[in-house]
Amino acid sequence: MSTRASTLAGRVMSAPSIIALFLWMIVPLGMTIYFSFLRYNLLTPGMEEWIGFVNYKFFLTDHAFFASLANTLVLVGSVLVITVIGGILLGLMLDQPIFGRGILRILVISPFFIMPTVNALVWKNLLMNPVSGFFAWISTSLGFQPIDWFTNAPLTAIIIMVAWQWLPFATLILLTALQSLDRDQKEAAQMDGAGPISIFFYITLPHLSRAITVVILIETIFLLSVFAEIFVTTGGGPGLSTTNIAFLVYTQALLQYDVGGASAGGIVAVILANIVAIFLVRLIGKNLDA
């Protein structure tokens, strides 16, 4: 796109899809914004009326909001840390010419193909169950008290499940990035006297920075709205200890039939996601330039 004519042609050509995408986004968003200013409860049909910011006031001053905001941030942050570090380690391992590498790669990638709901059920009933679960069996065979994950460490349990689900994604992206690292560069560093650890920090990690950025941005978008894992296992509890923003909106709308309040919550969630996104892009997005 160098000449003015080709720039213009490019804009004209891409306009229809951009307009379609814009409508696709703006219509539901506009309706949600509209609902969020109404008193709109499904238990009292026909009583809808304009109430301004009251829904927002209720949502934002509810102590459940702050609890779920904190849970959301802890969940997103922990899963990001686990998947990025775990993904780098697994990627480094799978990049080595080890025996059975092909099968290992498939095994590492497979959790990504499992639906979140199924994932949660497996973890809840087969692994983390305090009586019949695999972890409980390990603990008791070693002579320890089994942990009742969903009662005593519910948020940690959710974090482990979600991290397990997203680790393959991070591994896959980081492995491809590792494979594109020029062998000559590592050899040049070796000639320069760098050991494996220096090579990792001075050569490999900078090479991975762009891929890590992509992993963080994409995962954040999805992790802000984790729902199935919470719904299937803890239902947001005990108390509010595993309720994130997405789950809070759901309780508002479907448990209390408060469409207006849920819409306001949804808009707050959108705004929060945007704040996080802007923050992330500012912080690490420069890695995507050039």
Binding site: D184, E187, A188, A189, Q190, M191, D192, A194, I203
Partner: peptide, 17 residues
Amino acid sequence: PAKRGLSMVFQSYALYP
């Protein structure tokens, strides 16, 4: 390689980008 005290110039330059 480092102990041998030799330097190498690669065909691809292999600079650290």
